[in-house]
Amino acid sequence: MSIAANLQLIHQRIDAACRRAGRDPKSVRLLAVSKTKPAAMIEEAARAGQFLFGENYVQEFCAKAEVVQAPVEWHFIGALQSNKVKYLRGKVALIHSVDRLSLAQEISRQWQRLEKPANILLEVNLGAEASKAGSDAAGLAELAGQVSLLPGVRVRGLMAIPPWEADPEQVRPYFRRLRQLAAELAGQGLPNLEMAELSMGMSHDFEVAIEEGATLVRVGTAIFGERQR
């Protein structure tokens, strides 16, 4: 199937999941995960109406951002080293993977040069997996409180990559927990913090994520095919 056909099918699945959950389909945005995919495929997806693209690697993102001519919006969703933040400054609309105060501080410093705050999500490691980044649930409130005081960032919500399960229903409790954590943070009245976004769900489980409140679903394989590396 073509990228356009894949996108059409995914949007149909998003709409169906929203109907099951009693949600407006416009409340869910599709983020096309374009890591390892060439600029030509991004352009093809853009011609089919896809606007949001997520990249995982700073160097790869910078190279693509220079050559992609379509008016797309870039998100950064991968692990991010503080010394690489400067390369993203002003080029990405949302950073999904802020998992520690030192990283948020560097983002704040870099975006203050633009006199415009960076929009970020706090990443939560719900499965306590050593192989994954993210704050643990117990430390999230403290991290959010510290980050919310930084002048150059705005916390827009939370992101999580739950443990992989073949049956998406097994992941539902993690998605539900992220929504609960967001509600708890929203009730604290922290400055510069709004729990408007829940970035959760990927190609094999995004429908369950939508049913549990996702506003951004990160889909790569189901759009572009299997990874090339």
Rank of each mutant, 00 (worst) to 15 (best):
V28D: 03
S148G: 05
H11K: 11
K35W: 10
A17M: 03
C62Y: 09
S102A: 14
I3W: 00
N83D: 11
A166L: 14
E142D: 13
A4L: 03
V72F: 12
V68R: 05
L149A: 13
R218G: 03
Q146F: 03
E165K: 15
R218V: 07
N119E: 14
E129K: 01
R229L: 01
L126R: 02
L158C: 10
S27I: 06
G187K: 12
E44G: 03
P168K: 13
V208R: 06
E73H: 15
A214S: 15
D167W: 09
I77T: 11
A144I: 02
L52R: 02
P168F: 08
E129T: 07
A63Q: 14
G127A: 14
A48I: 07
E207Y: 05
D99Y: 11
S82F: 06
L52P: 04
I107K: 02
A186W: 11
E226F: 00
P168Y: 09
A63S: 14
A130L: 12
Q228A: 12
K132F: 04
E66C: 08
V124M: 00
E129Q: 09
I10M: 00
R176A: 15
A63V: 12
F175A: 03
Y174Q: 09
S148T: 10
L216Q: 01
I3E: 01
L114T: 04
R13G: 05
L7W: 01
R20T: 01
A141R: 02
L143N: 01
N6P: 04
Q50T: 06
R177L: 14
I161M: 15
E197D: 11
A138I: 00
L193C: 14
S199N: 04
A5S: 10
M202A: 10
L149F: 11
Q188G: 07
Q69M: 12
A137K: 06
G213H: 04
V98Y: 12
L7F: 02
V85F: 11
D136F: 02
A46D: 03
F51K: 13
A196C: 06
R47D: 14
A133C: 05
A4V: 10
L158R: 12
K35D: 06
H96N: 10
E73K: 15
R20Y: 01
G145S: 07
Q110A: 05
A45T: 09
I107F: 07
A128I: 01
P191Q: 09
